[in-house]
Amino acid sequence: MIARVVIMPKRGVLDPQGKAICSSLHAMGYGEVDDVRMGKFLELRFGDGAGGEERAARVKAMCERLLANGVIEDFRFELVEDGAPAGGRTDTPR
């Protein structure tokens, strides 16, 4: 079982890294990008396959207590089976 945790700067919190990346994309000719915000992606691996409410509640507590800072960041997570493909598109061969 893996928890995939995404942490993003809250709306309204200055994200100078995202801004710098956005300007760089514009300079490269990707003017269609309106905005970039940069966050973090973490994978927490659990030895057992247990999912369910209790696991979710504990991952939520981990996010609130350590992984994200609620003053400046929002988080979301999903619990997936180990080896499950990540969503989205990639050119990296699996």
């Binding site: 100078p16 800072n69 003053v71 400046i72």
Partner: peptide, 17 residues
Amino acid sequence: LCEAGLLPGALVRNRDL
């Protein structure tokens, strides 16, 4: 101290990186 909640707010990356 901010992370520990002993002071309010947080400190983030400098405006000019």
